[in-house]
Each structure stands twice: as C-alpha cells, then as structure tokens.
Nucleic acid binder design. Structure first.
Length: 689
DNA sequence: GTTAGGG
DNA sequence: CCCTAAC
C-alpha cells in the first residue's frame, strides 16, 4: 500500500489470475523451417520489390548525384521563414525506375571459380555476372534490340522474358561487370572465357550454352537500353517449384570448389560461407543477388542467416527486414509434396540430377512472348518446350518501372540541393514502404500470393501472354485521407539509403507539374536545377534545415489507387490484397501518459484490458501496439537520455514506467509463488486430511 | 483471440 | 511495427 504513494496514482488492481505468469515463459527461438520450397506469387512480388530496394542500397556515389554535393544553400534567415504562400508545390506524377533487370540466374552456378577471375580482373572488381548470364543477357538483349523489341507504349513497366539457358553445374563463370553495360570487347572475352578456358578446365561440365556457339555480340545500344537507374542489373530467378530459395551473393574472389578440382559429388548449390564484413560489403557493393536453388534439406533459416551475415551491420539488416519495409519479406514457404509436384519425379532425385538433363549442350530456352509480341517469339517458345522441360525457372526481365506520383511542397527559399534531397527522400520512402508490386497475368491481377508461379500460370510451360508488374502506391502511405486523425504523411528524413543516381535522361522524370506556383512550370528537373544556383551559404550549413523545414511530403497516388500498369489492365483493379505494413505512428506524449496510467492500474500482461480502458477509441492502436510501446518505453527508460531518440518522453513518465514495471514484476513473482504453494499445499496436506 | 517475445 | 509460438 505504500507503493501507491510512491507512484502517485490511485493504486493498482491486481489481476485475478496472473496470466502474466507467462512472462516467465521463455520462447524457443523460432526456427524457420522449410518443408516445401515452392516459390509463391508473393515471393515473386517480394523479389521484384526487393530488387527495387536493393537499388536504393546502391553506392554512395549514386547518392552524391542526388545530394548534389555542390549544392548551394539559401540564407539561413530565408530558410527559417517558411511562408505558406511561397511554397513550391511540385507534383512528380511518375518517375521511371529504369532498367530493372531481374533475370534468372543459373541455379547451378554458385561454386565455380571463373578462370578469368582467377587470372585477373578484367571484368572489374566487384561485379559478378556469370558468363552464362552474360550470354543470357546478350541473347536477351539481342532479342530485345533486334527481333522482339517490345514496345509497351506508355506503360510503366516492361517485362521481358528472355531465353532460358540451362547449363551444367560446371559452366559457371562469373566475371563481373556491375556498373556498366558490357562492352563488346568484354562480351567477346566473356564468350571466350566460356567456350575456351572453362571448357578446358571443366572436364565434367559442358560449359557451353546456346548450342556451343557464342552468341552474336550485341551492341550496347544505349538508345534502346533504358538509362540504368542504379548502374547495375539485379537478377532474379524464380524456381517454378521444388526448391528452396536462397539469396546469396557471389564473391568474385571466393575460392570455392573450382573447375580444376572436380569432386564426385559437388555441391553446386551451396551458398557461400559467411565471411563477415567483407562478404557484406560485397553484397552491398556488387548488388548482385541470386536466388539460387538450394538442396532440399537446406533450411530456410539459412537464407536468413545469409542475410544476417550479409548485413553484419545489424541496423542495416533490420532496416531491410522491417525498418525500411524491405519488401523481400520472408514468407513461410508452402508445403508441398515433392513427388506430386516434381517433374516426373526427377526432382526428387536430388538437385544434382537436374543439371544432367541439360548436359547435352543444348540450351533450353524459355521464351515467353510478351504482350504484343508474336511471331518469332512464339517460335522461340516452341523451341523452349522442345529443348528442355526440366528447368523450373521462369525468366523475367523488367525493363523499367515508374514510381507513382509524388506531391512535394517546398519553400521557395529552399535550396536546389534540398529539393533534390526532398525528392530523393520521397522516392526513397515510397520505394521503401509505400509501394506495392502487383503481378498481372493476361491483364488480370494475380491476387493469390500463395499460389506458385506454376499454379498461377507463370511458368515455363505456359504461353505467357501478358505477364506484367505494376507499382502501386501503398494507400496507407500514399493517401492522407487514409490516415484518419493523422496528419498527411510526412516522409521520414532519416532514411539513409541513397537512391540511385538521378536519371541522366530528363525525360525519365515524367510530367513534372507545378501546383499553385508563381513560377512557370518546370519542364523537367534538370532545367530546374540549372536555373537555381544562386545560393551562397555552404551546402552543409543549411542542408538539413532546409530539408527539415520543407513542407510535408505527401505521396499522392498517381491515379488514386489505380494501378500503374505494366500491362494493360482493362478493369480498375482494387487495391492489392497483399498484406501491407501499417503506417508508423509514433506515440504522442498524451498517448504515453494514457498507456502508463492504464498499465499502472491494470498491470502488464493485460494488454487487451489496457486497450479497452485507455485506447478504446484509438482504432489504430491494437493491444499488441500497446504492448510493444510499453516494451519500448521500458527500454527507453533503461537507457541513458543520450541514447534516446525521437520525441523525448518526459522523465517523469519514464520513471513511472520503471516503477510500474518493477511493481508488477514483483506482483507476478508473488502470485507465482502463491500458485506454487497452492499446488504444493494440498499434497503436503494430504497426510493431514 | 491474447499474450510474450524475437526481430 | 511484424511475425510467430504458445496458450
């Protein structure tokens, strides 16, 4: 009873039955188990979206171009004076994210060391593209550039399915070219590497693809190839079924089992070992991700481990996992029966069995005609079927995406640099969390994320008429009207992720329009930037302040919630049913106060009651939220004020949190003791009865 | 559906 | 804030 006075409130209510005895319960760390390894449509979405995010994790160099290191700043006084009527409202209806090139990799390529890599660094330092993939790209590019240059009109996303090239496990050569389109010379060397050196050193493997002929060198026609946004090509492959998916990054200097040391049982699918920071840097640097096949007995946790090891920086990892809404979320893989789903049962024989099907040196080509692509493409598709029916991968090439519309208000006095940064942050945020990826098949939205590609019809055996991806604004992020009680979304300023460099082609920033503006409409960002360079202060002086004082950035869906379609969608599709992350809503001090008061009264472990008592009207606060907030409050109270971030919580409240927690912990302990005694008592009393 | 806990 | 297990 004395404690009441200490806490300064009316007292505690001891719960009748302390469910909180669970608090003593220690949970076994959840192990991700993989009992099946089909990839679901969700994973397809996630992979595409994840690739977008990986774009954001691009090199600092790309960031510089956005930050415009040479940006001048306005006078501080001007910055402080934020006048409503002076704000510029810029509406960027769409921005292209160009040349996202998810593409299949060869699942067999994971452990081979490229002779060319061993010999030197002719392909650069950090990139990693298998020769085979180079060939794939070549071929794909050839198809695109030459025969099937696929015009998608004004569509936001272009998806191309390239030829599928199957290879033996031994033909993996991984030279590297991350930051540029391969030049003819490099390509030529690549071909040589695959046809010559590798073949010499790989007795077991048939290194050759494409019928043993090096593909015709394709000129890197930049007029056809959209300007690269992130200066790299991420690759994605989707097993149609059967295999665990593991995201690995190939270390170019990794010396795993080389071609010169063939072993009877090779492990071509083994992921690269953890090698700590270096590996992480490689991942971030190369930004080359593979979705590799893994043996059936591998567990999905390995994927997580790879991520963890890949991102030694825990915060980075966490950001990917949750903080940045990294959409490549782990998803529990569907259970499946290997026998029933396997292709004639061959898959069940093991991974090593699969490459054997392709050893004959004939490439298995999967080509799926795109929307509007007919003729030659269909013949390719036929080829594909005749060549190989074993490879469970779907090959996709997404030419470009458009970022949904952004709405930006920024003071006139803001610097160009801050404008750039603002746009960057808006784009970053929308890519990070406010974006959904939709998959469209033959004009229809694929809604069931749990279906496999095979089930959905996105498979090698399918004549993919129209496979498309769309970027859709996340309504919870995009529309203020969807945030009842909340202010229009202010995009966070603390997103450290650099976006890929500003598109060199000003045309990529489409339809930059000006909202109520005193200035003439700005045709494109490039012109705007050039015309505003009259600042005097140093960029760093006022950079953050400019930024912070700009008006809220509101991500406005370009067409309401309509899809930015990659493929013509005839009917207006509803919002994607993909579970979307809720918008982050920091607790206000008043809410914290209410929470603390309720917990003081009810105790911890009664979050539903706390919710009903103090947050019944706050629909967006679930009892889980309250529990989590209490958790963070407790953590905040325990750390030093210097370590605290965000809006400072009054120390008085934090003290109350600590006191209440201490009290209720003691109560729980007491009640546990009582319970134990009650359980023991009857037994001990038995003799007396 | 709730709660605890890891992420 | 999400996800999962345990209840």
């Amino acid at each position: 009873m004395v404690k009441r006075l200490d806490y300064g409130f009316n007292g505690y209510q001891v719960p009748a039955i302390p469910r909180a005895t669970r608090s003593a319960r220690k949970r076994v760390p959840f192990r991700k188990r993989v009992e099946g390894n089909q990839i679901s449509a969700f994973d397809l979405l996630a992979t595409v979206a994840g690739t977008l995010l990986l774009d954001k994790e691009s090199s600092p160099a790309s960031n510089n171009s956005w930050n415009a290191e040479d940006q001048s700043a306005v006078e501080k006084n001007n910055v402080k004076e934020e006048r409503q009527d002076g704000d510029q409202s810029l509406k960027l209806e769409t921005c292209n994210v160009s040349e996202l090139v998810p593409q299949t990799n060869d699942p067999n390529c994971s452990s081979r060391e490229s002779p060319s890599l061993q010999n030197g660094t002719q392909f650069g330092v950090t990139s990693a593209i298998t020769t085979s993939e180079c060939l794939e790209r070549l071929d794909s590019q050839k198809l695109i550039d030459g025969k099937i240059k696929n015009e998608m009109g004004g569509l936001a996303c272009k998806v191309e399915t390239g030829p599928f090239v199957s290879r033996t496990p031994g033909d993996c050569v991984e030279p590297v070219s991350e930051n540029k389109v391969l030049t003819d010379e490099e390509l030529d060397r690549t071909n040589k590497a695959s046809t010559g050196q590798v073949a010499d050193k790989c007795p077991l493997g048939d290194p050759l693809v494409l019928d043993g002929k090096p593909p015709a060198v394709v000129s890197s026609d930049s007029s056809i190839k959209a300007p690269s946004f992130g200066e790299h090509d991420p690759f994605i492959s989707f097993p149609v079924q059967q295999y665990d998916v593991n995201v690995v990054s190939r270390d170019d200097d990794e010396k795993s089992s080389g071609c010169t040391h063939p072993s009877p049982i090779r492990e071509p699918f083994r992921s690269t070992p953890r090698i700590g920071d270096r590996r992480i840097r490689k991942i971030l640097a190369s930004r080359y991700w593979k979705v590799a096949l893994r043996s059936k007995n591998a567990t999905y946790s390995n994927y997580d481990e790879n991520l963890k090891s890949g991102y030694c920086n825990r915060s980075t990892y966490k950001r990917l996992r949750s903080g940045m809404n990294f959409p490549f979320k782990k998803r529990k893989f569907l259970h499946y029966t290997s026998e029933s789903n396997s292709d004639g049962g061959t898959i069940s024989e093991g991974i090593s069995d699969l490459p054997k099907k392709n050893i004959n040196g004939k490439a298995s080509i999967l080509y799926s005609k795109m929307h509007g692509v007919t003729g030659e493409s269909s013949s390719l598709a036929d080829q594909c079927k005749s060549f190989n029916s074993r490879d469970p991968h779907v090959k996709l090439r997404i030419k470009s995406f458009s970022v949904p519309e952004l709405f930006i208000e920024i003071p006139e006095s803001a610097t160009v640099g801050s404008l750039k940064r603002t746009v960057k942050e808006a784009v970053t945020a929308i890519l990070g969390g406010g974006l959904c990826v939709g998959v469209l098949l033959q004009g229809k939205k694929v809604r069931d994320d749990n279906k496999t590609l095979l089930q959905t019809g996105i498979s090698r055996d399918n004549q993919m008429d129209a496979l498309g991806f769309s970027l859709e604004p996340n309504p919870s992020h995009a529309s203020p009207s969807l945030c009842p009680g909340g202010s229009p979304l202010t995009l966070p300023h603390d997103i450290p992720l650099p976006l890929a460099r500003y598109p060199a082609n000003p045309g990529l920033v489409n339809q930059v329009t000006c909202h109520p503006s005193t200035e003439p409409c700005i045709p494109n960002a490039g012109n705007f930037i050039e015309s505003n360079n009259d600042c005097t202060a140093s960029p760093t002086d006022t950079f953050d302040k400019s930024t912070t004082e700009s008006k809220a950035l509101v991500a406005v869906p370009a067409m309401s919630v309509e899809t930015l379609a990659a493929v013509p969608v005839h009917k207006k599709s509803k919002q994607s049913e993909v579970a979307q992350r809720r918008i982050r809503r920091p607790f206000s001090i008043a809410e914290v106060e209410a929470l603390v008061q309720a917990v003081e009264k009810l105790g911890t472990g009664r979050w539903r009651d706390v919710k009903l008592r103090a947050f019944d009207n706050a629909k967006h606060r679930t009892y889980v939220d309250l529990k989590d907030k209490w958790k963070t409050l407790l953590h905040t109270a325990r750390i030093s004020p210097q370590q605290r971030r965000g809006e400072p919580v009054p120390q008085e409240l934090l003290d109350r949190v600590l006191n209440a927690h201490t009290y209720w912990s003691q109560q729980q302990a007491k009640q546990q003791q009582q319970q134990q005694q009650q359980q023991l008592l009857p037994e001990s009393c038995l003799p007396h009865i």
